[in-house]
Design a protein around this nucleic acid. Structure first.
Length: 291
DNA sequence: GCCCAGGTGAAGC
DNA sequence: GCTTCACATGGG
């Protein structure tokens, strides 16, 4: 890897990688589509992605000599076939996989992921995107963009947000979530909750640590476990997944959240989180197609 | 106007 | 224990 010439573009040779469903499925909130391109900010860098023959072509605004940060974010080394082979062999999963084959899970930076999902509760994905866009514009740092492109900002770190006033955060239209985000930023900034030091914790212990934050319950914690820390069995249950499980596996019966979590833990295998994301995306896309 | 959105915490039985 | 409700804000 060392010794390569710095470049502003790189192709990641991946198969079965659908950028649209991966970047638009509601696991990350900072990507916007422009024709065949997807433009976002990863690790403080402006990035443009496009599907091409042989893989995904990435461009940055300035030269890069080590692309591991982006390969890691995209999880370019993951074999989708291997993941899909762990799914249960049942009709709902076959249908869900068929609906969005090529959907991948990203590996996001923990603070951005945690903060984003604190802002996600009872909001639609488009609104979460709007709030986060405002937050970055007002509190993030400008990042370099290629000539002629609209400005872009980094995701504000905990130190920056810890110094904000609650009213300034509310002005980003996050409503009652503002004090939750502020408290999280302060506890991370103070070192009381060191997000970088949690990678070695087991699933249950990490979940418990995250849930000590106000505004972070089981669902949001599971999103962070899955999307930032790479715990493959974390299984976030939101309204869509609740609907999916009830309809597809419980014949519409009433079930408690605990029952669903227990079922999910036993039924969906070692990559239950991946299965969850396929169910989530399938339910949402199906809903959009039929009025 | 009404209901819902990648929920959570607190109050009420 | 479990059920109900408030919480901001915007879209359908």
């Amino acid at each position: 890897m060392t010794g390569e010439l710095p470049s502003t573009s790189r192709t990641f040779h991946v198969a079965d990688y659908d950028l649209g469903s991966t970047l638009g499925c509601g696991q990350a909130f900072r990507w916007r589509q422009s024709g065949n391109d997807w433009i976002g900010v990863v690790g403080g860098r402006w990035v443009r992605l496009r599907e091409g023959r042989g893989g995904i072509r990435a461009e940055t605004a300035g030269p890069v000599d080590d692309w591991r940060w982006l390969a890691d974010y995209l999880q370019a080394d993951v074999s989708l076939d291997r993941v899909l082979s762990t799914f249960p062999d049942d009709e709902p999963m076959r249908v869900a996989v068929k609906a969005c084959r090529g959907l991948r899970l990203l590996r996001q930076e923990p603070w951005e992921c945690l903060a984003s999902f604190i802002l996600s509760s009872t909001k639609q994905i488009v609104q979460i995107q709007q709030v986060i866009s405002l937050l970055c514009e007002r509190f993030g740092d400008p990042v370099a963009v290629p000539p002629g492109h609209p400005p872009a900002w980094s995701f504000p770190g905990p130190a920056r947000l810890a110094g904000a006033r609650e009213a300034q955060l509310r002005a980003c239209k996050m409503g009652f979530r503002a004090p939750y985000l502020l408290e999280a930023a302060r506890r991370v900034q103070s070192g009381e909750l060191n997000l970088d030091g949690l990678h070695d914790l087991g699933e249950a212990e990490l979940r418990a640590r995250l849930m000590t934050l106000h505004g972070v319950g089981r669902k949001i914690a599971d999103c962070v476990l899955l999307f930032a820390y790479g715990h493959p069995a974390a299984f976030p249950v939101d309204v869509w997944v609740l609907r999916a499980l009830k309809e597809l596996y419980f014949a519409g019966r009433r079930v408690t959240p605990a029952t669903l979590q227990a079922f999910a833990a036993g039924h969906f295998g070692s990559h239950a989180g991946y299965a969850q994301q396929y169910l989530f995306h399938y339910m949402r896309s199906r809903d959009r197609m039929s009025p």
